[in-house]
Nucleic acid binder design. Structure first.
Lengths: 359, 359
DNA sequence: CTGTTAGCGCATTCAT
DNA sequence: ATGAATGCGCTAACAG
């Protein structure tokens, strides 16, 4: 009597629906694809059968038929736990949804091997396109031929020697403009908190930073430049070291939100021990929730990572919808907004006192 | 001569690989599935052909064959832009990867219709299982029959009248314990910042909150209870209103990270106008980056959303790997950690002065 | 309007 | 160790 631990029943197929509705599989198929050339009454019978059986059309079977799209895109990002990429992924997802596509999402954890694996798997699953935040390692697996000519969009970072559609933030200029503004405010000793150099973004932001320094005739002091911090904990240590210098920087450029968090933690902790600490002005590339309330002089270089994701997706779908257009890889650089210097009570006073802090 | 805008070439198939390698499709298939019963030498020829053609096995075609798994799970979450769910998604992804599965990820934006759409699509794509953070609306579409008996795990929230494996946070107890601790510290007027009531989490946390109040013989003052804030902006307004009361609360319970952010913003802004403001103690359910550095007395009720995601995924795979086991829906409640009250300089002084703040 | 035939890419089964 | 036949679920193309 007892059917026992019911084996996971195989999903119902068109045939079963057809049988229950007393029609041919073809009529079911037609009904499900809009109902052209099917009597209303028959459609109803079919839909009823669909409902009672809990039938769902097998999209995989559907997608192997010639000319049919998979409606799937593959997205590989480096770190989902970073709110930045959460917003990014949301931007991608929203635009994909508008275009009727679903998103296969994988996390690379900055590991090239994993990236390779993911991309290969995505291709095997017939994704129509790929959006990748590259880890920055070797990237042969992203070459067009390896991808079976599936459109690829790189986001947030580039890869040396790889031609592909790319959406970047205007890193160089953002770093340049913000550093310049800090220099104009009178700072001369400016620290740098960077992430790993192999990440193109890091280099580009460092480049803009140096450009501004050079323009003001300031040599970048190697003691003030730290690089390679990939998470907040590392950034915090780096910032602590900067604060502990005999002659600490009066301003610090932070490459990304992880470094900003770490820097603010270092400052916050240090302030507990030394409440009169006059914290350095922080140039924060990427906005961070609550940062502006931290009572630390702050210049935010912000942009919307969600828009970055959306833009990457738009770029991808444009290529999918118009494969006939020019094949040349395109590069888009999204502008950043350099804000005002917030919480700069001390800085104001210093400037009011005239001249530069260090003669 | 010019091939013209090369039509997106159809992906190579086993047949093409076979032809190039001078073998039958079957030999290619065998080689790709481990190489049993294929001569080393032939395997090599096949692999070479695979490489030159850029061949990727069509997983979709593969998955329609009987007995074959899709290696796909579907995940629907409410808001990817919330770092909480970013961590959650990462937890799911990592465990899925360990089990050789990929993740289809969709964002519902708290919209039931979208959730329904996503789940239906996921089922059509032959996902082996579903992990859903339910929006809280009607949920007929999540009933087993509608899902073709695909295993479902609800995470973070429950749905009234729906039996399914569920992973929750120990909301009631976390809210209870933290509120109790604040009451023990002498607070009697405690505000409440909540999200929409239809979300089960909100009710559960409110429940724990009220339990603690009741135990201390305190009636919850309706003026101090705000609900329905779904984002930081709304939460901020609600908190501003609390701060503006003639007799503002000395402590405020914040249901989730969005409300905490909003509350801290309100406090921060208010403090700019009134530097001597003695901010209320904040009970923050869910941790928030930088919150502990905000110079606001803070009691964090924390848990790791990544672990929540991991646990949901483990639950799913356990059911997938052991379909024969008991069918009863299981419920797991992950413990929370109620921390110490941080930054409580003022509170200390108040307590040291003896008695309760309000006679 | 409806049904039949055929084939998408792959792998199981059964030869050889 | 290899290949041929067959069918998975679905739907164009072609009858009727």
């Amino acid at each position: 009597m007892n059917p026992g631990p019911s084996r996971p029943k195989a999903a119902p197929t068109v045939r079963e629906v057809a049988e229950l509705a007393g029609v041919s599989p073809m009529t079911v198929s037609r009904t499900l694809s809009g109902g052209k050339n099917v009597r209303r009454e028959v459609q109803q019978r079919v839909m009823d059968a669909v409902a009672t059986l809990g039938y769902h059309r097998n999209e995989n079977a559907r997608s192997i038929r010639p000319g049919h799209r998979s409606d799937l895109i593959g997205v590989a990002i480096t770190n989902l736990a970073n709110p930045y990429y959460g917003h990014f992924a949301l931007g991608v997802e929203e635009v994909a949804a508008q275009h009727g596509r679903r998103m296969l999402l994988g996390n690379t954890g900055e590991d090239v091997a994993r990236e390779k694996q993911l991309v290969s798997d995505f291709v095997g699953r017939q994704v129509e396109g790929l959006i990748v935040v590259p880890t920055g390692g070797a990237a042969d697996h992203l070459k067009g031929t390896r991808l079976g000519d599936i459109p690829l969009v790189l986001a947030s970072r580039t890869v040396r020697g790889l031609k592909a559609d790319t959406v970047l933030i205007d890193d160089v200029n953002g770093a340049y403009e913000s550093t310049k503004r800090i220099l104009e405010a009178g700072h001369t000793r400016i620290g740098f908190l960077g992430n790993v150099i192999s990440v193109a973004t890091a280099s580009r932001r460092y480049e803009g930073f140096c450009q501004a320094l050079a323009e003001f005739g300031i040599e970048s002091d190697p003691d003030l430049v730290t690089r390679g911090q990939q998470d907040a904990a590392a950034a915090r240590k780096a910032m602590e070291a900067l604060l502990a210098l005999d002659d600490p920087p009066t301003a610090v450029f932070s490459t990304n939100n992880r470094n900003t968090i770490g820097a603010l933690e270092a400052i916050g902790q240090r302030r507990l021990r030394d409440p009169k600490l006059s914290p350095p002005t922080l140039i924060a590339f990427d906005d961070v929730e609550l940062a502006h309330l931290m009572q630390v002089p702050l210049l935010v270089v912000s942009h919307d990572p969600r828009e970055l994701g959306a833009q990457a997706a738009r770029m991808l779908f444009e290529r999918l919808d118009h494969p006939e257009r020019a094949k040349r890889a395109r590069l888009i650089e999204l502008p950043v907004v350099v804000g005002d210097i917030l919480n700069q009570h001390r800085a104001k006073r210093r400037r009011a006192a005239g001249a530069r802090p260090l003669p």
